[in-house]
Write a protein that binds this DNA or RNA. Structure first.
Length: 955
DNA sequence: TACTTCACG
DNA sequence: GACGTACGTGAAGTAT
C-alpha cells in the first residue's frame, strides 16, 4: 500500500498500514457509534446460537482488538451517541430527519457493544443531547491543550474538521492514516476550512441543506478564493457566474445554519475527567467469557494466543502452548502469530536472481503461499500476468510477467505508450519455479488454488503438494459464513484487503490486471499471497481441533487438481445448432407475443411480472390475484397454471412464452457467447466452497442446470456434443438420496426394497397405501414419489399438499401413515433436529459439518425452516460426499486401465465424460463400478450409464 | 441492487 | 397458537 502523503518509507519495504505508525502515547478517541453502523453494514448477518444477531458486535470487537494490538496508547475512550435527538434539532428540527429507522437486527446489538467495551476494560463516554462527534471534539480540545497527542479512530468525514496540530485521524476499516493531506484530498481545503465547505455543499445523509447546486468541488474553490464562508457571503455580489451568485445570495442564511449543524461542539460538558480515560489492564478471563458467549471462536483463539505469548496462561487456566508462535512444529505447521503486529515487507521481483531468494526461503520453511494474477476469470484461457509468493506473515513478493504489454501482445504499435517494465519472461519463470512447485517437501498454499493450479498446468507445471485456505475454511465453517479471501480476512484478521475494484476499477472503465501500474499491482498481489499464508496459519491447526482433517484431506483437497482438469478440458458445443434454436425461438416468441397482446387487448411487456400481473388481475380481472410481501401480484407458473386450468387461454400462452424466453436468453443465446475462441469449448467454473451442504455449484456458465425436462429443453442438451471420433458418457446415481435416507435412518422396510431392486416409489406406495404391487396405479405411485421427495426436503403437510394439489389435511394424513409404516424415520428426524439444536450444526455420514444458523431462532417460521434444512443437509451432504469420493477415484482408475476418458462435468448425481469411441463401453463400465463402490452401506449404491454422440443421447 | 422467475439436482 | 412453508443452487430480466 502506498502512502498518499509520500512521507513514509519507499517500496519495497512499505509501511504496514500505508501510514505513519500510530503514536504510541497520547489519547485515542474511538468513534463507537460510527463503528456500530459501519460494522453492521460491512459484515454479513450472523447470529449466536440463541438467535441474537451479533455481526456488528463481532466487527466492533475485532476493531478494538486490532487497535489494542496496534497501539500502546496510555489513554483510550470509546465514544457513543446517547439519543437520537441533540441540541442541533433545537434550531433545525429536520437535522438527520432522513435517517432510516434503525434495522431490527441492529437494535439488540447496542447493549452488547456497551458490554464489549466493558469487557475490554475500556472507558466509554456518552452524554444526553450531544453526538459522539461533539464529545470527541471536546476531549480532543482538552488533550490538545494539555499538550497530549490525540488520534481519532473513525471513518467519518464529519470528524475531519478536527484534524490539526496534535490531532490525527485513523480509519481502521481501511487501515488508513488521515492527516491534513488526506483531508485536503477529500475536501479540497485544509482541515480548519472543512466546516465552511460542508456548510456550502451540504450533506444529504445528515439532511444538512447547504446551498443548492454547490457540491464539494465548487465549495472548495469558493472557500479557497474568499478565505472563509462569511467573507464569501459578504462578497457574493461579486461572483461572476450568475446562477451561482444568485443561489449564494438567496441561500446565505441556509448556509449559515448548515455551518452551525456541521460545526462540532468542542465545549460540551464532560461526563468524565480527562484523567479517568487511562487504559487499564484487561481482565482476560472476563473478556474471553464475553467473546465465547457471542460464539466468536476465532477471536477467542487470538486472545488466548496473545495471553500465552504474554505468559498469562496460568491465570486463565489454559493448557500450555504447544508451540512457540512462528515456530514450525513436527507436522510442518507454523504456529499462529498475532498478525496485527507484523510489519509488511513487499518486494517486486523483476529478475531471476531476486527470485532465487524466494525459492530458498520456501525450501527453508517448507511452506509458501502462491497466488496468480491474470487478465480474465476463465483460467482455461486466461493470460498469466503475474505471480505472487509469501513465505512468512508480512513477507511477500510480486513477480510481474505481462504488464504494460497489452498493445504489443495485440500486435499494435503504440509509440506513445511507455515501454513495458522489466519482467522475467513467463517461460523462464516457470522453469525457475518448476522444481519448487513440484517439490514434494514444499507445501504450496493458495486460496481457491483450483484457479492457480490450472494456470500452472497450462504452463507445464503440476503444483503439488497443495493446501487451500478456502477449502480449509469450508471444511471448518461450512454454512456459517462465506469463504472468500476478503471475508475471511475481515473475520479472522480484522483486516480489509485492497479490493480488486480499487485496483482495476469497475464497469466501463475497468482495466485488466496487465494494465495496472507495478507499484499498485505489487501492493494488491503481494497482499493476497500474504493474507493467504496468514489465513492458512490460523485455520490449518483448527482442522485437528475440529476433527475435520479427514473431510478436508480425503474429500475436498484432492478434488482441486481433478476439477481444475475438468474445467480446463471444457465441453464442446454445436454452435450452429444453438444458433438455429435461437432463431427458431425468436420467431415463435414474436408469434406468441402477438397472441398474448391480442388476448389482453393491449400491448405490454410480457417479461415484466409487474405489468403482467396488472393486465391479468386489474385489467382482465381473472380472479383475485395479489400475493407476496412486496404487494405485487404473483404471476409464477403455479398461478398461471391454475388460471390456464380455469380456461383462460392467455395464461397458457404466457407460460409458453416464459418457457421459450428462458431457453433463449439463458441457454441458446448465452451459451454461444461462452464458447472460448482459444479452445472452441465452454469452460464452466465449479465452486468448491459455495454451498451449505457440501455440493459443488457451477458458474460462468452454470452447466448444472441445462434443460432436460421438456422436449424443447432436450434440444439444448443435444447441442452438447463429443469431439469427432469421441463419445459422451453419462453415469448417474439412481435414487441416491432416498437410499441414504434408508441407510441413515435405518429404515428396514425401505432398505429391503432397495436390496430387492424394487421400483422404490411403487414399493413405498404399496407399503403406505396398502395397495399390492400388481394393482399399483400411476396416480398412487405418483403420490408415494412425492412423499419420498418430501422426506428428503424435510417434509411439511403444507408443502406436500401444494405439490400434490390436495388439502393440507389429506397431506398430513399421508405423512402420518408414511411415518407409521417407516417408524424408524420419525425417530431419526427427531434425533437429527435435536442434534442440530444442541450443536448448531448437523453432520454427514462422512463427518462434514453443516452449520445451521437459525435452528435456535425465536421466530417459529425461521426455526421451522432451519429444521427442514437440518433434515435435508445430512442427506444432500452425504450424497455430495459420496460423489466427491467417486470423483477423486475415477481419474486414477481410468488411467490405470489405460483409458483416455476425460471427466467433463458433475451434476450432483451425474458425471459426464468424453472418450474415444472405441473405449466408450469399457470406460462406462469402469466409471459405474467406481461410483457404486465409492461407499459401502447396507443399502447398495446403483449407478446407470449411457453413451451417445451428445448429452441428450447419453443421459 | 433487489426482486421475481425458472432452469437443474 | 405463533409464523410462512417443501431442500440445494445460478442466471436473466425488470424495477427501483
Amino acid at each position: 500500500m502506498t502512502d498518499s502523503t509520500g512521507t513514509t518509507a519507499p517500496a519495497p519495504t512499505a509501511d504496514l498500514d500505508g501510514a505513519a505508525a500510530p503514536d504510541r502515547s497520547g489519547l485515542y478517541l474511538v468513534d463507537g457509534s460510527g463503528f456500530i453502523f459501519r460494522a453492521f453494514h460491512a459484515l454479513p448477518m450472523m447470529t449466536r446460537p440463541d438467535g441474537t444477531p451479533v455481526n456488528a458486535v463481532l466487527g466492533f470487537s475485532n476493531m478494538l482488538l486490532k487497535l489494542l494490538a496496534d497501539v500502546k496508547a496510555e489513554a483510550v475512550a470509546v465514544v457513543f451517541d446517547s439519543a437520537r435527538l441533540n441540541f442541533r434539532n433545537e434550531f433545525y428540527p429536520d437535522y438527520k430527519a432522513h435517517r432510516p429507522e434503525t434495522p431490527e437486527e441492529l437494535k439488540p446489538q447496542f447493549a452488547l457493544i456497551r458490554e464489549a467495551t466493558d469487557a475490554f476494560c475500556l472507558p466509554s463516554l456518552e452524554l444526553d443531547g450531544y453526538e459522539a462527534d461533539d464529545l470527541i471534539a471536546t476531549y480532543a480540545r482538552l488533550a490538545q491543550e494539555a499538550g497530549r497527542p490525540v488520534t481519532i479512530v473513525s471513518s467519518d468525514k464529519d470528524l475531519m474538521q478536527l484534524v490539526g496540530p496534535g490531532v490525527a485521524m485513523y480509519d481502521p476499516m481501511k487501515n488508513k492514516h488521515i492527516g491534513p493531506d488526506e483531508v485536503f484530498e477529500k475536501f479540497g481545503v485544509q482541515p480548519d476550512k472543512v466546516v465552511d465547505v460542508q456548510a456550502l455543499a451540504g450533506d444529504s445523509v445528515d439532511n444538512v441543506p447547504g446551498v443548492p447546486g454547490i457540491g464539494v468541488k465548487t465549495a472548495a474553490q469558493l472557500i479557497t478564493e474568499y478565505g472563509d464562508l462569511d467573507t464569501l457571503l459578504a462578497n457574493a455580489e461579486k461572483i461572476k457566474q450568475p446562477a451561482r451568485r444568485q443561489k449564494l445570495i438567496e441561500f446565505a442564511d441556509q448556509a449559515r445554519v448548515s455551518r452551525r449543524l456541521v460545526q462540532l461542539e468542542a465545549n460540551a460538558p464532560q461526563p468524565k475527567p480527562l484523567e479517568d480515560l487511562r487504559v487499564r489492564e484487561p481482565d482476560h478471563r472476563r473478556l474471553i467469557d464475553f467473546l465465547k458467549a457471542q460464539g466468536f471462536r476465532s477471536i477467542v483463539a487470538r486472545v488466548e494466543m496473545e495471553m500465552k505469548r504474554d505468559g498469562r496462561i496460568a491465570d486463565a487456566g489454559l493448557p500450555a502452548s504447544p508451540a512457540t508462535p512462528g515456530a514450525v512444529d513436527a507436522d510442518g505447521v507454523v504456529a499462529p502469530q498475532p498478525t496485527a503486529t507484523v510489519e509488511k515487507r513487499y518486494e517486486l521481483v523483476q529478475d531471476l536472481a531476486a527470485l532465487e531468494v524466494w525459492v530458498r526461503r520456501a525450501q527453508a520453511s517448507g511452506v509458501i503461499a502462491v497466488d496468480t494474477e491474470t487478465n480474465s476469470l476463465t483460467p482455461a484461457t486466461a493470460t498469466l500476468v503475474g505471480v505472487s509468493l509469501s513465505t512468512a506473515p508480512g513477507l511477500a513478493c510480486y513477480i510481474p510477467l505481462a504488464h504494460g504489454s497489452a498493445a504489443a501482445a495485440a500486435g499494435q504499435l503504440d509509440f506513445d505508450a511507455p515501454p513495458p517494465p522489466k519482467q522475467i519472461p513467463t517461460a523462464d519463470l516457470m522453469a525457475a519455479l518448476k522444481g519448487m512447485l513440484e517439490d514434494p517437501a514444499i507445501l504450496k498454499v493458495g486460496h481457491n488454488f483450483k484457479f492457480d493450479h490450472q494456470l500452472f498446468a497450462r504452463n507445464g507445471v503440476t503444483v503439488s503438494p497443495i493446501d487451500d485456505s478456502m477449502l480449509i475454511s469450508y471444511a471448518l465453517d461450512g454454512g456459517a459464513h462465506g469463504h472468500g479471501m476478503d471475508e475471511l480476512a475481515e473475520l479472522h484478521l480484522a483486516y480489509t484487503p485492497i479490493s480488486f475494484k480499487e485496483v482495476c476499477g469497475t464497469g466501463k472503465t475497468q482495466i485488466t490486471f496487465d494494465q495496472v501500474p507495478l507499484d499498485k499491482a505489487l501492493d494488491y498481489a503481494a497482499e493476497d499471497a500474504d493474507i493467504t499464508l496468514r489465513l492458512w496459519t490460523l485455520l490449518k491447526p483448527r482442522l485437528v481441533e475440529a476433527r475435520m482433517v479427514t473431510v478436508y484431506e480425503t474429500l475436498d483437497r484432492p478434488l482441486v487438481p481433478i476439477i481444475a482438469d475438468m474445467e480446463r478440458a471444457g465441453v464442446r458445443l454445436d454452435q450452429d445448432a444453438l444458433k438455429r434454436l435461437s432463431q427458431d425461438l425468436a420467431v415463435r416468441l414474436v408469434e406468441i407475443e402477438k397472441d398474448v397482446h391480442q388476448l389482453a387487448g393491449q400491448s405490454f411487456n410480457i417479461g415484466s411480472p409487474k405489468q403482467l400481473g396488472e393486465i391479468l388481475f386489474d385489467v382482465m380481472k381473472l380472479g383475485a390475484g395479489k400475493k407476496g410481501k412486496t404487494g405485487a401480484y404473483s404471476t409464477d407458473s403455479s398461478v398461471l397454471e391454475e388460471l390456464a386450468e380455469q380456461g383462460h387461454s392467455i395464461a397458457q400462452r404466457v407460460l409458453d412464452w416464459r418457457q421459450l424466453a428462458k431457453l433463449k436468453s439463458t441457454y441458446t443465446d448465452a451459451l454461444q457467447e461462452k464458447i472460448e475462441a482459444l479452445t472452441g469449448r465452454v469452460h464452466t467454473a465449479f465452486a468448491l466452497a459455495a454451498t451449505n451442504t457440501g455440493r459443488l455449484s457451477s458458474t460462468d456458465p452454470n452447466l448444472q442446470n441445462i434443460p432436460i425436462r421438456t422436449e424443447e429443453g432436450k434440444k439444448i442438451r443435444r447441442a452438447f456434443i463429443a469431439a469427432p471420433g469421441n463419445r459422451l458418457i453419462s453415469v448417474d446415481y439412481s435414487q441416491i438420496e432416498l437410499r441414504l435416507v434408508a441407510e441413515m435412518a435405518n429404515i428396514q422396510a425401505l432398505k429391503d426394497a432397495f436390496r430387492d431392486g424394487l421400483d422404490i416409489h411403487a414399493a413405498t406406495a404399496a407399503q403406505v397405501f396398502g395397495v399390492p404391487l400388481d394393482q399399483m396405479t400411476p396416480d398412487i405411485r405418483r403420490k408415494a414419489k412425492a412423499i419420498n421427495f418430501g422426506i428428503i426436503y424435510g417434509i411439511s403437510g403444507f408443502g406436500l399438499s401444494r405439490q400434490l394439489g390436495i388439502t393440507p389435511g389429506e397431506a398430513n394424513s399421508f405423512i402420518k401413515t408414511y411415518l407409521e409404516r417407516f417408524h424408524e424415520l420419525k425417530v431419526w428426524m427427531e434425533a437429527t433436529k435435536s442434534f442440530a439444536r444442541d450443536h448448531g450444526y448437523v453432520e454427514t455420514l462422512f463427518g462434514r459439518r453443516c452449520y445451521m444458523p437459525g435452528i435456535q431462532d425465536k421466530n417459529p417460521a425461521r426455526r421451522a425452516f432451519a429444521e427442514r434444512q437440518a433434515i435435508n443437509a445430512p442427506i444432500q451432504g452425504t450424497a455430495a460426499d459420496i460423489m466427491k469420493r467417486a470423483m477423486n477415484r475415477v481419474p486414477a482408475a481410468l488411467a490405470a486401465a489405460g483409458s483416455h476418458a476425460q471427466m467433463l462435468l458433475q451434476v450432483h448425481d451425474e458425471l459426464l465424460f468424453e472418450v474415444p469411441e472405441a473405449e466408450a463401453e469399457q470406460a462406462a463400465a469402469l466409471v459405474r463400478a467406481v461410483m457404486e463402490g465409492a461407499a459401502s452401506f447396507s443399502v447398495p449404491l446403483v449407478a446407470e450409464a449411457g453413451i451417445g454422440s451428445n448429452w441428450g443421447e447419453a443421459h
